[in-house]
Computed example of a mutant assay.
Amino acid sequence: MEFTERQEAIIQMLKAKSPLTGEEIANQLKLSVPTIRADLRLLTAIEVLSARPKVGYVYQGNGQTGVDYAALYDQPISAIMQPAPTIKDDATLQEAISKLFLEDVGTLFVVDQKGLLVGLISRKDLLRASFNNSNPASVLASIIMTRMPNIVTVTADMTVKQAGQLLLKHKIDSAPVVDANAPQRVVGRLTKNRLFQHFIEKA
């Protein structure tokens, strides 16, 4: 990670002498404490500095073990995606309910006989359909699913940042991961929980 001239000056200052308070650092730079506050927060967040209450800031490393932003945001979805829970479009509502709970997922991706994505069934869809139908074995998944093209998909070559922005923009908890060259071929799934897990593991 590249630092600004001011951040480099703070690092060198604390390398030479630690601890220093925020006021001492600001005085040496001939700046105000609010001016350098963002720099101190960043350097502390990536573990170049540590902040000790009533003591000040201490230099503790070169940041190589800090947050690797490239690993966090630029990694392709293919590296973190999970297996896709799919069900055929001629499966019954009862089969869909059983599969959803057995696999403990929030969404099933509906595929046709060629294995191509044609729809999506969420827990809400299944709950609503169950209330409206007394015989789940008589209702097909294709009747209650949300159909293409009304499904937000991500591609395996998208970065974590790009895919995460799509989930946030459309306010959805998961999305099918599809092949960029065959947009109806499902290759995995991405969920908000998986993204959260990725950030915790890499932070």
Rank of each mutant, 00 (worst) to 15 (best):
I46R: 07
T191H: 05
D157A: 03
F196H: 11
K161I: 08
I144G: 05
Q12A: 14
I80N: 01
I97D: 09
L31A: 15
V139S: 07
A203G: 15
V152W: 01
Q64W: 13
G22N: 12
F101W: 13
D90C: 08
L40F: 10
M81E: 10
L43M: 08
A51V: 00
G106N: 07
K30L: 11
K171S: 10
K88P: 07
N133P: 00
A16F: 00
A163H: 06
V118S: 03
V178D: 02
I172A: 02
V152C: 01
T159D: 05
F199I: 07
T4M: 13
K99Y: 08
Y59F: 15
S32I: 11
S50E: 15
A79C: 01
R128W: 01
I87T: 08
F199S: 06
Q28D: 11
H198V: 04
Y69D: 05
S134W: 09
L31F: 14
P149Q: 09
P149H: 09
I46G: 00
T92S: 12
R194S: 06
G119P: 08
P176N: 04
T92C: 01
E8G: 00
D104P: 00
Q197M: 06
E2P: 00
Q165D: 14
R189H: 01
A79Q: 11
V111R: 02
L72V: 06
T21N: 07
T153Q: 08
G61Y: 09
M145A: 04
T44K: 05
G56R: 01
N133E: 05
Q60Y: 07
L49P: 06
T155S: 07
D89Q: 13
I36Y: 05
